[in-house]
Simulated scan of single mutants.
Amino acid sequence: MISSLGLIEVVGLVGAIEAGDTAVKAANVRLIGIELTKGGGMVTVKIEGEVSAVTAAVEAGVMAAERLTTVVSKLVIARPSVEVGQMVEPTEVTEEVVEELKEKVEEKQVEEIVEQEKETAEIEVVETTIKKNRKNK
Rank of each mutant, 00 (worst) to 15 (best):
Q86S: 13
V93G: 04
V93E: 11
G33H: 13
R79D: 13
V29R: 01
V24P: 00
N28W: 01
E50H: 03
K132C: 02
L101A: 15
D21F: 02
V88A: 04
E66S: 15
E124I: 07
P90H: 10
E89R: 14
R30T: 04
V54W: 00
E96V: 06
I130M: 10
N133K: 14
A26H: 07
I130K: 14
I2W: 03
I2K: 03
A16W: 09
A26L: 09
E119K: 13
G20N: 04
T128S: 13
K132R: 11
T44P: 01
E106L: 12
E99W: 08
R30K: 12
I77D: 06
Q109P: 00
E117T: 05
P80W: 03
V10P: 01
A65S: 12
A60T: 02
V110K: 15
Q116F: 04
V114I: 11
G33E: 11
E106P: 00
T55S: 14
K132D: 11
S4A: 15
V126I: 13
K46N: 00
G61D: 05
E66K: 15
L101W: 08
R30Y: 01
E117G: 05
Q116T: 04
A78V: 09
T94P: 04
A65P: 04
G15V: 02
V126P: 00
G41N: 08
G12A: 08
G49N: 06
E115D: 14
E35N: 14
A78D: 13
I17D: 02
A27I: 02
V125I: 10
L36I: 13
K132S: 10
V97Y: 13
A53N: 06
S52L: 14
G6P: 05
E115Q: 14
S73N: 15
L7G: 06
N133S: 12
E106F: 08
K25H: 12
